[in-house]
Each structure stands twice: as structure tokens, then as C-alpha cells.
């Protein structure tokens, strides 16, 4: 006990860094779910001012926030969708931080065999790593009860939050992203928020170059050199993942890019 106390004294010094309270809430995107009809679970984490948690690619340090949804058999879960992070420069490098009220979403596909009128318990567990000058691990688990009806219910108020989370780039009008063995090319309409950029998600062996952007009237073409080092890479086949971003603020528009590496696209782009 003495050593623990001594350790704690060192850790905290005179200015004890108390564990920040990250509060969590969850909601479904619809009032009632229907058999075989996908819906979203929205998990909201309130991070105290001055602290941050981490995006799915934490950057130079940190650890990604993770959401796990435990369901009865037959449900299919999608990946966790994250908001656009804020890029913070720390002494160890640039990190991808999430601050304030953070909304994350997971697409849930219920089985067609659900019984009308039954209630389903979805156990949603979140793990996070919250940091300022010091860091703390945190976790919470909440059970979300959803009722099964013949038709999906009205959207809940939380469904509107899904618009704050980057959508797949395929859903952006008149925009395409293709990748070959040397280049990721994204072309589309410009955005009033500012010039486009690319925030990659690290994948072992995938090496990124500096993006270059050209503008043609109201359109842009962004080229990002990319290569794959098989000696470093451990994940096969590698994927090209990241965010197409516009402007500099974490509230500015962003779109998810997720493509298999090295596959030739189906056509040329302007």
C-alpha cells in the first residue's frame, strides 16, 4: 500500500489530475425497428472541456475509441462511423482528437425472423482513452431496449445527428475516388468550406505522399501518391481508407473513402 501511495503521490503531485467524467448515452435512429430493416445505433460521448478522446486512427499516439454492440443471434453489425476529428499537434506528433459532444454510429441489421411485438436488448459498450496532460482509460455499458414492429417507426430526434457523421464518398454528388498501385485520385465538385484534403487512416505498409490539388472552375482533382511496402505490410489485402475533407474545421464537410488498394478503377476521370 505504501508503494501505491508513493506512486500516486508522484503521479498526481500537488495538482492531482482527477479522472474526467466522460458521460455516455445511446439511442436508436428509429422509434421501433422492423424485421430485416437496418437502423442505426447512435452513441454519444460527452467529453469534458480541455480533454479529448481519439478517432479511429488516433494519429501519433493515443488509442481509438471503440464501440461494441452485443445483440441476440442473427443481427449483423456494421463498422463504427466516426465524426471528423480535430488535428492537434502534441509533442509526440499530430493526433486525431474528438472533443466535446461526440456522436458515433453503428449500422445494425436485424434478422427477418424477429417476432413482431418483442423487445430486443442491445448491449452497447464503449471504450475510450481520454487525455489532456495525463490520460485515463474509460468504459461504459448501456442496454438499449428496442421494440419490434411490422414497420420501422418514425426517426428519433437522435437520427438527425447522423448527418454530422461523414457519409461514404459514393453518396456525394458527382464525385469519384479511384486508386491504382501509385495514386489515389478524387475528383468532384468544390465545396464552399474550403479546399479539399485527405486524412488517411494508417494501414501497415501503405505509404502516403503529399496530396496535390488542381481546380477547374467549380471542380477539383486531388491526387495523393500512395505505395505499398510488402515488407512492412502485414494486412492483406491492404485498403485505402481515410477522409476527404473540405475546409479546416472539424465541423466542415468530410466524406469517407474506403477502397481496395491496387485495383484498377473502372474508368478515367476528368
Amino acid at each position: 500500500m505504501a508503494s501505491v501511495l508513493c506512486f500516486a503521490t508522484y503521479v498526481v503531485g500537488k495538482e492531482a489530475p482527477t479522472r474526467p467524467r466522460v458521460s455516455m448515452s445511446v439511442a436508436a435512429s428509429v422509434e421501433q425497428i422492423a424485421p430485416g430493416r437496418p437502423f442505426d445505433v447512435i452513441c454519444t460521448l460527452d467529453v469534458p472541456t480541455g480533454w479529448h478522446i481519439y478517432w479511429k486512427d488516433p494519429g501519433a499516439s493515443g488509442a481509438a475509441t471503440e464501440i461494441m454492440v452485443h445483440t441476440p443471434p442473427g443481427f449483423v453489425m456494421g463498422p463504427t462511423r466516426f465524426p471528423r476529428p480535430k488535428r492537434l499537434l502534441e509533442s509526440s506528433g499530430v493526433i486525431n482528437a474528438l472533443e466535446g459532444r461526440v456522436h458515433l454510429a453503428i449500422r445494425v441489421g436485424p434478422p427477418a425472423s424477429l417476432q413482431i411485438g418483442q423487445t430486443v436488448d442491445l448491449v452497447i459498450k464503449a471504450d475510450w482513452f481520454v487525455c489532456k496532460e495525463v490520460c485515463f482509460l474509460g468504459a461504459e455499458e448501456i442496454v438499449l431496449n428496442v421494440r419490434v414492429a411490422k414497420e420501422a417507426g418514425q426517426p428519433t430526434p437522435q437520427a438527425a445527428l447522423l448527418h454530422q457523421i461523414p457519409q461514404p464518398i459514393e453518396s456525394r454528388d458527382d464525385t469519384r475516388a479511384v486508386v491504382d498501385a501509385h495514386l489515389l485520385r478524387v475528383a468532384g465538385q468544390r465545396d464552399a468550406a474550403g479546399p479539399p484534403s485527405f486524412l488517411p487512416i494508417a494501414c501497415p505498409g501503405v505509404i502516403w505522399g503529399t496530396p496535390s490539388v488542381s481546380f477547374y472552375e467549380n471542380r477539383f482533382v486531388m491526387d495523393v501518391p500512395v505505395s505499398y511496402d510488402q515488407e512492412i505490410g502485414v494486412q492483406m489485402p491492404p485498403r485505402i481508407q481515410g477522409l476527404l475533407t473540405f475546409g479546416a474545421l472539424d465541423s466542415d464537410p468530410a466524406w469517407e473513402i474506403d477502397l481496395p488498394f491496387g485495383e484498377q478503377s473502372d474508368g478515367a476521370m476528368q
Partner: peptide
Amino acid sequence: PAPSNMRPWGCGVKY
């Protein structure tokens, strides 16, 4: 060694 370079995880070093 292969891999020779794996992204580290953990707390940022506070230089």
C-alpha cells in the same frame, strides 16, 4: 525482423 515497423500505441510521450 518482419514486420520491422509497427505503429506504436499508447500515451503520447510528453516531451
